[in-house]
């Protein structure tokens, strides 16, 4: 918005320039229409409406591409169902109680695994980011473990935790925890050292500086990190639900595959996408609500 106004002002000025300041030497040629600034500028903001319209266009392009492939019979409908078929199935499935049960159990698993990871990773990450000794103790092993694929832990998890709810939660936890510790530590290190020093000159002890400066300062970045991590949690959920389960969205997707119900696979994926989008929006909202000072 701001930029659009500024840009407009600048154009007006440019237009008025030759008339006002030209004086007697101004020739007719100087009054030609100023050339317009190009709309696409590096890093510059665009009007809010322009952004929304472009985003909608992007979705429409995807939909158009899909429609051409499916309605045009370029791909067999067994492999790629038509959009209207998926929409139809979407409402069909959401009309059944069983599907809501799948959604419910999946949301529960993601929330539990993610919450557990946050609960443990955030304090550890905060300490590792604040004190170099803690960093040396915590980070090298974490760096090592995080490159181990969480999925490869599945057999081990089944040995440890069986195939019950804990197994799914544990996989999501393992997938998120190590990354989260490192990301929180990195967020914490970005807190301005000057602010901490300012608190020292105001009489803060080290503990008080952590409490009254490091923790409040890191919160907005922390929220953003959690928001990113939640996306990962959903990915690990689907992996967790592909093996030895009989409920959840991942299971619904697997079952649909067995009967070649690709439309149901699409619905499962879209539902997970929508859930992710929804939780993402909640985080974005909370960020604005709690941190108006950013």
């Amino acid at each position: 918005m701001m930029h659009a106004e500024k840009g407009h002002g600048a154009r007006q000025e440019a237009a008025a320039g030759p008339k006002a300041g030209g004086g007697p030497r101004a020739v007719a040629g100087a009054l030609r229409k100023p050339t317009r600034r190009h709309r696409i500028q590096i890093f510059e903001d665009i009007p809010k409406r322009g952004f929304a319209v472009t985003a909608i266009v992007s979705f429409l392009v995807m939909l158009a591409f899909w429609s051409i492939l499916s309605y045009g019979n370029m791909v067999s409908r067994v492999f790629l169902p038509t959009p209207d078929r998926v929409l139809h199935t979407f409402f069909d499935l959401l009309g059944t109680q069983a599907y809501w049960h799948h959604i419910g159990i999946s949301v529960f698993r993601v929330s539990a695994g993610f919450a557990l990871a946050c609960l443990l990773a955030i304090p550890i990450g905060l300490i590792a980011g604040t004190f170099r000794f803690a960093e040396a103790f915590v980070e090298p092993p974490m760096e090592f473990i995080r490159y181990m694929p969480a999925v490869a832990f599945i057999p081990l998890i089944m040995v440890w935790a069986g195939i019950g709810e804990w197994a799914k939660i544990l996989l999501i936890f393992i997938g998120c925890f190590f990354q989260l510790v490192l990301m929180v530590a990195s967020d914490t290190r970005q807190v301005s050292k000057d602010l901490v020093q300012a608190s020292f000159t105001l009489g803060a002890s080290r503990w008080q500086a952590v409490q009254t400066v490091v923790i409040p300062a890191v919160q907005p970045r922390l929220m953003n990190t959690m928001r990113l991590m939640l996306g990962w949690a959903w990915t690990y959920l689907v992996v967790a639900e592909l093996v030895a389960v009989n409920s959840g969205l991942g299971y619904a997707i697997m079952k649909a595959q067995r009967f070649l119900n690709t439309d149901q696979i699409f619905v499962g994926i879209i539902v997970i996408g929508l859930l992710g989008l929804f939780s993402d929006r909640i985080f974005a909202f909370l960020n604005r609500r709690f941190f108006p000072w950013v």
Partner: peptide, 19 residues
Amino acid sequence: GPGADRGMVFQGYTLFPWL
């Protein structure tokens, strides 16, 4: 070490932005 008896004003802005 730093202490409350020696207040300091820095060149950069060091107000606590959340307060």
